[in-house]
Design a protein around this nucleic acid. Sequence first.
RNA 1: GUGGGUGUAGCUCAGUUGGCAGAGCACCAGGUUGUGGCCCUGGUGGCCGCGGGUUCAAGUCCCGUCACUCACCCCA
Length: 444
Amino acid sequence: MIQTIRGFRDILPEDIVIWQAIEKTASKLFEDFGFKEIRIPIMEKTELFARSIGETTDIVEKEMYTFPDRKGDKLTLRPEATASVVRAYIQHNMGASDSVQKLYTIGPMFRRERPQKGRYRQFYQINAEVFGIESPYIDAQLILILNELFKRLGLSELKAHINSLGCKECRPTFQKELLGFLEGKKEHLCENCLRRMDKNPLRTLDCKVPECREALKDAPSTLNHLCDKCKDHFEIVKNVLTEQNVEFTVDKTLVRGLDYYSRTTFEILTTALGAQSAVAGGGRYDALIKELGGPETYGIGFAIGFDRLAEIVAQMINGEDVEVKDGSSTTSEFNSESDFMNLLSPKVPDIFIIPLGEKAIRLAYMWTSALNIAGIRTETDYSGRSLKSLMKRADKLNAANVLIAGDKEIEDNALVLRNMKTKEQFFITTDNPVEQIETLLNRV
RNA sequence: GUGGGUGUAGCUCAGUUGGCAGAGCACCAGGUUGUGGCCCUGGUGGCCGCGGGUUCAAGUCCCGUCACUCACCCCA
């Protein structure tokens, strides 16, 4: 049997319900905040990612799916979306038509890592990016949007971690000081951190190795070295969040793995997925657009891990003992009436037509098609099986009604429409069953 | 890339010192000649992940391999 390749997976119909509900909830929210959807390619020239994410990051060094195409160009399956959105922004000169652009996109990303819970080689992200706004209010607003999204999904316990990395003015002096500090602690650092010292010293700050954490306990913090502008910027972000009752923690170890971030960075963390704690993350990247050949433009954005989010939502639904099978009962108090929970209701047939006999099967097919076209969810069965087994099937499908159409009923011009819940039965005639069913369904 | 755990029916899992491959759920049929859910009876369904080895005999022991999984690393 041919199977999916490692780290790739199928999202089956039973799971898609949650995916679609999250997607609808997110795009509604983003559009209410003025974001427009953009769809970008899944493949780009390798150079785009190498230059934006950073040549020495793990992603670029060893996690990308890169291969030559027929003419020898190096192509890469995108490991993240921001680089492509920035490329599109530059390529179509989007800043010219409107100096402020708010964009979101949803789609798969590819990284060749060892799979584990909440981490796949093809994984999905929802991305939001804002171009052309320097003000810290937009930093706060992005975190507010994430907070609101998680609230709407019933995940109010998730909390934001935020930090500021400084800008091209204040970061170099900080890096110098950090390097000096690291030199003094060299013998206590892990191999990885020693490597990081050369490549990207900031990254030592979020090392998880206990010895490193201990050694770096008193390491200088970016927060103490921010220039006045960066300091003011960060203060406003924090003040606004506080005023809007968005809970957050200042986390000076929040450095993030992509080189392009400056000033505000943030992550939304969870404990629900073992070691994979980040559900969403993002930050400001004011230098990136120019770096990639565009005009000097402010930029900030975030990515939400769709697979992880869907997993947490699924856990929440199961944990809350929410009954979604027939969409009728939900026990979860705070969100049972929410738009999101309504989106989770599965679609079940309004009618299941049970034909008994050859003539009946032909008519059942005709009626089913007509009802489907009329927008009434209808199923039938062509196997010629017994009434009892088809009743069972109707029950399994959770059909609201069955229409029993045996050769006998057709002969007598009296079809039986049975409500599966109340067991009420109505007779309808064979001349225009579609219209009769429409009126009966509206009445009940 | 490194380390641990697990691979048996569609699903969840038993399988003793090596001795006929099992259960529950699901599916199909019947009990009820044309009315679902509950119950009862019967049935379909297996390269025991794959390849080698040891043995009279391997689901079981050994080696390899692949996949899944958890953790490290990294990140969404």
